[in-house]
Nucleic acid binder design. Structure first.
Length: 438
RNA sequence: GGUGAGGUGGGUGAGAGGCUGAAACCAACGGUUUGCUAAACCGUCGUACUUCGAAAGUGGUACCGAGGGUUCGAAUCCCUCCCUCACCGCCA
């Protein structure tokens, strides 16, 4: 942990103090029981204690510093005896200070532990609810659903039939959940990555190619640690984590930074493979590309002025909508309910694509406003026009996650003798049809 | 993997036990002046926590990579760790 992590999350405490009602309402949405809500009062009380102990300690240290100065001066003017007497006095103060110091450290670490366990407070308009079933359909699909030929196949069978993805070989080389793309399957993957990056660049996002492994500080910064430790692949020998999303390395580019207000918004995009252990989720919906340990994703990340973060969220949602439309895929947008939202998010919209052969909605994008939650952890700030420090707001979204998009593309566009690709991809793939002879 | 050098404010970089929260320069910001551009000059210019104050502000504490130690007193001395750079080896 570096020093940033040692800083207390003051701003969060301020919210608990000043906007307690909002905090309570928000945490209730996340399913906090009345009992668990007591943590708010505990945190405030502990923070009061912290202040008190800090003030006491400062008094002691002040006295020590003053006397030390005096001792120095006495020695200089040759009054060694008096100086030595003062030394004894300082000794007593030091002991008192050490005791206080220990108490204060304990208080701080208790407080820290509580604050780290506290999720972001959902935005007021986040729907009530506990489970994915409670998510609100924010925008339903009002277009047509694809009509499939008789004997339509799910994507894993199409992938095999046209030799696009070899799941067995991936499992042989690595393990299940690590698909091996080949031929036009591999080329389609590369085409989609390029297409998404180009679209993001056109929308003003700077392209980044970040490291695919991150250290623990970075994982804490975006909130993967300690909350989702089990979801990440960890390399013990080097103390590094494989990225579960480009959000982690990209957002951490600004960890600890004070940016100038005129730099905002900062818009970044990055492609990375994403590695997820998905512990405990085996068994349901794991067929084919529906849930894999490694998939490709283009992410967009934005650092924004607090006053504009919600219009930016909307702009990101629009960006992803355009991508879906350009790929001619049926999709819907869900507004996640309090119980289903990620730990760090204040509002999240999920995009789901309709994969016609499976007749399933698959999540392909998650667009979130974290408000100041991540910025507070990472201390990403700017000076406003009054010269006051403020935390930026961070947002990000998948634009888009590939594996499930590929699943839907294959299933929805299948014909009797092949798969037809949407026109926007043709310049990227170099082919518009995947036929049986491949 | 081996060897060596180093980590100081937005940047460069001095400081080598008390006079240092830290010189100087650059950048930034505010201003003066010059017909424009450029330049010159003056001023401001770290962060966090906290006391008192309605506020402007004021007092205190901490921070010179991180953690620990020595000392009345540490950026400065000692120990541990981390990181960076250079050279060699290996390698896409």
């Amino acid at each position: 942990m570096d020093d940033l992590e040692k800083l207390l999350y003051m701003l969060e405490i301020q919210i608990l103090r000043d906007q307690k009602d909002r905090a309570i309402a928000g945490l209730k949405k996340r399913g906090f029981s009345d009992e668990r809500l007591l943590i708010i009062d505990q945190i405030v009380a502990l923070d009061d204690l912290r202040k008190d102990q800090q003030t006491q300690l400062d008094v002691q240290l002040n006295e020590r510093n003053t006397l030390s100065d005096e001792i120095g001066n006495l020695f200089k003017s040759g009054k060694a005896q008096e100086a030595n007497q003062l030394k004894i006095k300082v000794q007593a103060i030091k002991e008192a200070a050490e005791t206080l110091e220990v108490k204060l450290q304990q208080t701080k670490s208790d407080l820290d532990a509580m604050l780290v366990s506290l999720p972001n407070i959902p935005h007021a308009n986040v729907p009530e609810g506990r489970t994915p079933e409670d998510n609100k359909v924010h925008q339903a699909w009002d277009g047509e659903f694809p009509t499939l030929p008789a004997g339509a196949l799910p994507h894993w069978e199409l992938a095999e039939k046209y030799n696009l993805i070899d799941f067995k070989l991936g499992a042989f080389i690595t393990g299940s959940g690590f698909p091996l793309y080949r031929g036009k399957g591999a080329r389609l993957q590369r085409a989609l990555i390029n297409y998404f990056l180009d679209q993001a660049r056109r929308a003003g996002f700077e392209e980044i190619l970040p490291p695919f492994m991150v250290n623990a500080d970075s994982a804490y910064g975006t909130g993967q640690l300690p909350d989702k430790e089990a979801q990440m692949y960890y390399m013990e020998k080097d103390d590094l984590y494989l990225v579960p999303t480009a959000e982690v390395p990209v957002t951490n580019m600004y960890r600890g930074q004070i940016v100038s207000e005129s730099d905002l918004p900062i818009k970044l995009t990055a492609y990375t493979p994403c590695f997820r252990r998905e512990a405990g989720s085996y068994g349901s919906d794991v067929k084919g590309l529906n849930r894999v340990h490694q998939f490709d994703k283009v992410e967009i990340v934005q650092f924004e002025h607090p006053s504009r973060s919600y219009e930016t969220l909307q702009a990101m949602v629009n960006h992803v909508s355009h991508l879906m439309e350009s790929l001619e895929l049926p999709y819907r947008i869900l507004h996640l309910c309090g119980g289903d939202m990620g730990f760090t998010s204040a509002t999240t919209y999920d995009f789901e694509v309709y994969s016609a052969a499976q007749q399933k909605w698959l999540e392909v994008s998650s667009v979130s406003n974290f408000e100041s939650f991540q910025a507070n952890r990472m201390k990403i700030r700017f000076k406003d026009e009054k010269g006051k420090m403020q935390l930026v707001h961070t947002l990000n979204g998948s634009a888009l996650a590939l594996a499930r998009i590929v699943a839907a593309l294959l299933e929805n566009n299948q014909t009797e003798n092949g798969i037809r690709l949407p026109q926007v991809l043709v310049p990227y793939t170099g082919f518009e049809f995947i036929g049986a002879e491949e």
